[in-house]
Simulated assay, not measured.
Amino acid sequence: MVANIRSGSSPGGALRYNKEKVDKDEAEVLFWQKMLEPFDRYGRMDVNAYMESFIRV
């Protein structure tokens, strides 16, 4: 799956959309770069956790 990300106030919408697809086994995370670990200790995607990847330090 290739995400078509349009501009918005935050990347959260795109991340939640992708999470829904992964949860339904309609998509999978193939690769991420410069992002915090997107999975919790149970192997589920955690949108709030990896939204922190977008916070400026």
Rank of each mutant, 00 (worst) to 15 (best):
P11L: 08
Y50G: 03
S53Q: 04
D46C: 07
S7G: 11
F31E: 14
G13M: 02
F31C: 10
G8F: 11
R44L: 13
W32T: 09
S7A: 14
M1G: 12
L30G: 06
Y17F: 11
G13F: 08
R41V: 13
A14Y: 07
D25K: 11
M1A: 12
M35P: 04
R56L: 15
K19E: 07
S7L: 12
R16K: 11
S53R: 03
S9T: 12
S9N: 09
E52R: 05
P11H: 01
F31R: 11
S7V: 10
R44W: 09
S10T: 02
Y50A: 02
D40E: 08
I55P: 05
Q33G: 10
G8I: 12
V47T: 00
G43T: 02
K34G: 03
V47W: 01
K21F: 04
W32E: 06
S10L: 08
E52P: 10
S53E: 01
Y17I: 06
L30D: 09
A14T: 08
L36R: 00
S10P: 04
V22D: 04
M1Q: 05
W32F: 15
G43Y: 01
R16D: 02
R41M: 13
I55V: 15
K34A: 10
V47D: 01
N18R: 07
A27D: 06
G8M: 01
G43Q: 06
V22N: 04
M45H: 01
G13S: 12
S53Y: 03
L15R: 04
M51E: 00
D46F: 06
E26V: 00
R41C: 09
M1F: 08
K24P: 03
M1W: 05
K24F: 01
E28H: 12
Q33H: 07
M45A: 01
R16N: 10
F54I: 09
M1V: 09
K34M: 12
A27N: 06
I5D: 06
D23N: 00
V57A: 15
A14M: 06
S53L: 05
F39R: 12
E37C: 02
D40M: 10
E20T: 04
E26G: 07
R6I: 14
I5K: 13
A3V: 12
E37W: 06
V2R: 13
N18C: 13
S9K: 07
R6S: 10
L15C: 09
V29M: 10
N48F: 05
R16F: 02
S53A: 08
K19V: 04
S10C: 04
L15M: 05
E52A: 02
K34D: 15
R16W: 02
A14Q: 08
K34L: 00
G13H: 05
S9P: 08
K19C: 06
N4H: 13
V29D: 03
V57C: 14
D25T: 07
V47Y: 07
N4R: 13
E26F: 03
V47N: 00
P38E: 11
D25Y: 01
S53T: 06
N48W: 02
A14S: 07
R6K: 14
S53W: 02
N18P: 09
F39P: 00
R56M: 14
K19S: 12
V2H: 10
F54D: 06
V47E: 06
S10M: 12
F39S: 04
W32I: 09
V57Q: 15
K24W: 10
G12C: 11
E28Y: 14
A3I: 07
K21W: 07
E26M: 09
E26I: 04
A49T: 01
K24L: 02
D40V: 03
